[in-house]
């Protein structure tokens, strides 16, 4: 009981809760009109067509400066405030503002802030380089084609936009469009990388890219992003280059040959040594699956391989 009292007292200390608790002191019931009125309001709201998303910056208590400050502090980054502001300002916003001034009747419209085109271009180059270097470091045996495929996946608009919206850029971006498009979100992310590289250094920007963009690979099936098109030939090349022996595929099991659920189990051997196996609907497919299985294990893409590490330091400037 004492414990409960203590809990209630601590609750009362919070001002907000206190207000709620004392709000209905003086009457013991809720008026009978409250429920039907609220039901009617909800009903009318449901009947309305889909309302446009409200713009957070149009709310009266919006304080852009504190948002920018909070963005910087939340991510524990050391962005230069001016550069951070610039990274968030898209060209379309400036053009839009100038247009607005013209419509107001100003003959020589002037809007003296800089946009992020430069940062986007620079940031894209830096991000691309960081991603490539990081992937090469963490997947050292993966061939260039695979690295490029993973790189392209990470640099795709969707991945960049996801990374961008997850760090909370959506409301701070200055652009003419509303709601903010995927493309703008993606561009903002690379602009932020550019701005960070200028504010601190490229090595610090690489940690930013690693923590917010490359971690996107953590829950993905890597073989879905990249899979060799001719796995058996590729595996043969890999094995013969390493051990000077060629591989052979053997049918080691099959079930339900004349049914639609036919399964073939193909094993791959090099000099009578078992390398791996795979299942498939047809023998050709099982052979491919077996080769992909072994290749994915060699390259570290397999679902049983050690997961990608996201705490490695990268020395980009060197």
């Amino acid at each position: 009981m004492n414990g409960l009292q203590l809990y209630l007292q601590s609750l009362l200390n919070i001002k907000h809760i206190y207000n709620v608790l004392t709000a209905n002191v003086g009457y013991r019931y809720i008026k009978r009109w409250v429920s039907p009125t609220q039901k009617e309001i909800t009903r009318r709201k449901r009947r309305l067509p889909a309302q446009p998303e409200s713009k957070r910056s149009n709310f009266i208590e919006w304080n852009r400066n504190s948002e920018i400050y909070a963005f910087n502090t939340r991510l524990s980054e050391k962005f230069d405030t001016e550069k951070l502001n610039q990274a968030f300002t898209h060209k379309s916003y400036i053009l839009d503002e100038l247009k607005k001034q013209q419509e107001m009747g100003i003959e020589e419209p002037k809007f003296d802030i800089s946009h992020n085109e430069e940062y986007i271009e620079k940031g894209r180059e830096i991000t691309s380089e960081i991603v490539k270097k990081y992937l090469k470091k963490s997947l050292p045996r993966l061939p260039e084609v695979g690295i490029t495929a993973l790189h392209d996946y990470l640099m795709s608009e969707q991945m960049l936009a996801t990374a961008s919206s997850h760090i909370g850029t959506k409301d701070i971006i200055l652009t003419s469009e509303h709601p903010v498009s995927q493309q703008t979100l993606a561009q903002t992310f690379v602009a932020l990388v550019g701005a960070l590289a200028e504010s601190v250094n490229v090595d610090h920007a690489s940690a930013f890219v690693r923590d917010f963009l490359i971690v996107g690979l953590a829950n993905k099936d890597l073989t879905e992003i990249w899979c060799p098109t001719k796995p058996f030939e590729l595996l043969n090349d890999v094995i013969s280059a390493e051990r000077k022996i060629s591989i052979e595929a053997r049918l080691i099991g099959q079930a339900g040959k004349n049914t639609i659920l036919s399964v073939y189990h193909v094993g791959i051997y090099a000099n009578k040594e078992y390398l791996g196996s795979g299942f498939g609907e047809t023998i050709a497919e099982a052979k491919d699956v077996a080769a992909i299985n072994i290749l994915a294990q060699i390259y570290g893409l397999h679902h049983t391989s050690q997961p990608l590490r996201f705490n490695e330091e990268l020395n980009v400037s060197a």
């Binding site: 073989t223 339900g256 299942f279 992909i292």
Partner: peptide
Amino acid sequence: MSLLRKGQQWGTFACVWH
């Protein structure tokens, strides 16, 4: 689903005749 995962699924749910 990648081909690798498809193969794994196909092998797991294989219907054997005894």
